[in-house]
């Protein structure tokens, strides 16, 4: 007996349901990751004038690097410029919540930290913010991963993850690499 067009469409619908289930499984896992594990893309929409970073209270030269805030939170502030990070090396403690805050006075940059899920674009006009916990100690690479001009290849920094006991803030709460 010849197979009719409706038989064919029925088999396609059956297949579409299999596809639907497969896609729904991934979708559910992504939602679970976002809501339960709190893994979401960096999306804080916080603006800052790239032409006047030096006038901002937060991203002035003296306030960059890692600092234990008065209320105890640990924040690392980094400015990405053509073609270097300031500071070029930051210290963070292992197994503690850390907030990275990054911005740029010039063009688009971006960072990842090797071996971790830390990843964000740095777009002029915005503060990029990533909350994370570093679990492995050692010197990690933090390269600029977005094309920012001819010096892009030389633009990278170091994230030095130290055991909690070696993380010793000074009187102002600051910790630096050297």
């Amino acid at each position: 007996m010849a197979v009719s067009e409706s038989d064919i469409l029925r088999s396609e619908v059956r297949w579409a349901m299999i596809v639907g289930v497969a896609v729904a499984v991934i979708f559910a896992a992504v939602i679970y990751t976002g809501i339960e594990l709190h893994v979401n893309p960096p999306s804080n929409i916080e603006t800052i004038d790239p032409k006047a970073l030096h006038l901002s209270n937060e991203f002035t030269e003296s306030n960059l690097g890692t600092r234990v805030e008065p209320e105890g939170r640990i924040t690392t502030r980094i400015v990405a410029t053509q073609f270097a990070f300031d500071p070029p090396c930051v210290v963070v403690p292992a197994n503690e919540p850390v907030t990275l805050r990054l911005t740029t006075p010039d063009v688009i940059h971006g960072i990842l930290v090797t071996g971790t899920n830390v990843n964000t674009m740095i777009v002029p006009g915005y503060v990029a913010q990533v909350h994370t916990v570093f679990t492995k100690t050692g010197d990690l690479l933090m390269p600029c991963h977005e094309y920012c001009g001819l010096g892009h290849s030389q633009m990278w920094a170091t994230v030095r993850v130290v055991p909690r006991e070696s993380f010793r803030p000074d009187a102002e709460g600051r910790v630096a690499c050297d």
Partner: peptide, 8 residues
């Protein structure tokens, strides 16, 4: 992914 820790 999961072993590399949480980000957000």
């Amino acid at each position: 992914f999961v072993p590399r820790g949480t980000v957000g």
